[in-house]
Every structure is written in C-alpha cells, then in structure tokens.
Design a binder for these strands. Structure first.
Length: 271
DNA sequence: ACGAAGCCCTGCAAGC
DNA sequence: TGCTTGCAGGGCTTCG
C-alpha cells in the first residue's frame, strides 16, 4: 500500500542507480495494469538516457528523451533495483535494464498500478493536470483547505483524500492526521472552521514528513533488501486499531466504512 | 459541479 | 486439511 512517503522513499532509493543511465533493454511481461502498458514502450525508451526522476503526487516521472515514463505503484506495486539476470517472479511485470549491471524492476501483484508514456510536458497529462498541491510545499495550508472546502458537504476525510484537493493523503495518513487534529472524520468539509483546517494542514504535513523520515531509514538499501515498507513500524494512533483503546482517552476506537475505506477514530477526542 | 457508488485485482485471514 | 468468503484499497469511471 504505497502512500506518498513510500513513493518518495522509492524515488530517493532508486535515483542514484538510474539517473544518468542509458536503458539497454525494456522487457514487458504483463501489459494488464490499470491501463494497458503501451506496446511501443520499449521502442520509445530503449537507447534513451534517464536524465532525471521526479514525483508528482504518487506518480513517479522518469525523464527520457522528449517524454516521460509515468509510473504509479497502485496498491501493491514496487520498484526495485536488482542485478541484471535475476530471474523474474510471477508479479515482476516490467524490467528496465540499464547499461550498468543493474535492472529496475516493477512488481505489482494486484496490478492497480500504472506504467505509461507521456510525450512533452507531463503535467498536462490527464492523470496529472488536475492534481492538487503537494502537501509538503507552501502551496498547501489550512487557509487553502478552508477556502476550497466552503459549501462542500463530503465528509472531511473524503475531502482530504481527494487528490484534486491535495495529493498524497491516503487512507492511513488521513485517519492519523484527523486523529491528531482532533477532527471527526465524518464532519462535513464545509462545516469546519479556519482554525480547524489550520490544525489539519499541520498534522497532515507532520505525519507525512515523519513517515518520509522513517521510510528513508527503513528503505535505505534499494539494492537487494526485502523492500518492506517502513511506515508499518511507525507508531500509528488509530489505523488498524479499531476497538482498541484511544491512546489519549482510553475509550475504544470506533471503526466505520466511509466510502469503501476503513475509517478509525475516537468518537470522544474527535469532534 | 458535486457526491456516491462501482470497478479493477490478488493475497491473506477467518470461518466452516 | 481444504474449501469458500470477505477484506484490504488508490483512483478513475459512471451514474444520479
């Protein structure tokens, strides 16, 4: 379940091994991801150099020639550096072999991820053009959330998980940030005060930054290693703790379904 | 324009 | 033990 911290950690982990490298071969074993992997992908990128990697929301962008390789890890995807010639497993769908002895391998058991190609300015791509601000930049603030939420009736949790509002706030961190801000997840987005959104913007920022920090230590080695996500080892206050005592007041945490997502909160501490 | 629901997919855990 | 069932969920698409 890669959330933004894990995507950022992946970026930092693989960048030293792939930036500046020429792609010597591209092997696509499975094209059925969220969208079909472009049949011409190998033709488009083999021989090209990965000039840079960057991130927009949970999308990774590899600058190659006049376009970008667009990668999303979905629910279960990962990118790992393996030695060239490492036998592929059942869910190792795409390999980018580099001029070094290394190979960038995309693995995704549930196939919710994306591997696509964008010609020209990637930010104009339909998947990226309407994304909200990055939560760890100054474009994101309580004032921004407050203004955008006026007259919105969706639950505030759904509001902050909407990538068109702000990118990178997945289910785990939405639950955690709302708990830390003392805000009930089912509150209508438009009913929250500017002060409440100030707290929420702060807790979103803090939780994501802390997770990136932790992911950075847990996932430092992207060559070899097991690739286990780091955020599970961080202390989660509510996620996965339905029915257990609230760390603040001791009352049992409530667990609801909101949309299709599990929502855990303290009905006493979160108003 | 907004909001709710559906869908994609496999691994894992729980229940019978 | 081996089957079936339900759940996990990001994010796009469809429908009201």
């Amino acid at each position: 379940m890669p959330e933004l911290p894990e995507v950022e950690t992946t970026l930092r982990g693989i960048a030293p091994h792939v930036v500046g490298q020429q792609i010597s071969q591209c092997v696509v074993r499975e094209t059925r991801l969220r969208y079909p992997v472009p049949p011409l992908l190998p033709t488009l990128i083999v021989g090209g150099e990965i000039a840079a990697i960057w991130r927009r929301g949970k999308y990774l962008l590899f600058a190659i020639g006049g376009g970008h390789l667009l990668v999303h890890l979905g629910m279960s995807g990962s990118l790992r550096i393996v030695a060239k010639g490492t036998p592929p497993g059942r869910h190792d769908h795409v390999d980018l072999e580099l001029e070094s002895n290394l190979c960038l391998r995309y693995t995704d058991p549930r196939r919710f991820g994306v591997i696509s190609w964008v010609e020209g300015d990637p930010l104009r791509h339909s998947l990226l053009c309407s994304l909200g601000p990055e939560p760890l930049t100054e474009n994101f603030s309580g004032e921004y959330l407050y203004q955008l939420s006026r007259k919105r009736k969706v639950p505030v949790k759904s509001f902050v998980m909407n990538a068109n509002v702000v990118v990178g706030v997945g289910n785990i961190y939405a639950n955690e940030a709302l708990f830390l801000a003392g805000i009930h997840p089912l509150r209508q987005a438009g009913s929250l005060s500017q002060k409440a959104y100030g707290r929420l913007a702060d807790t979103i920022t803090v939780v994501l930054a802390a997770a990136i920090e932790q992911g950075g230590t847990t996932l430092r080695d992207f060559v070899g290693g097991d690739g286990k996500p780091g955020y599970f080892s961080q202390s989660l206050n509510v996620y996965g703790r339905g029915g257990q005592p609230c760390v603040r007041c001791g009352r049992p945490l409530q667990k609801d379904r909101l949309g299709q997502r599990t929502t855990v909160y303290c009905g006493y501490c979160q108003r």
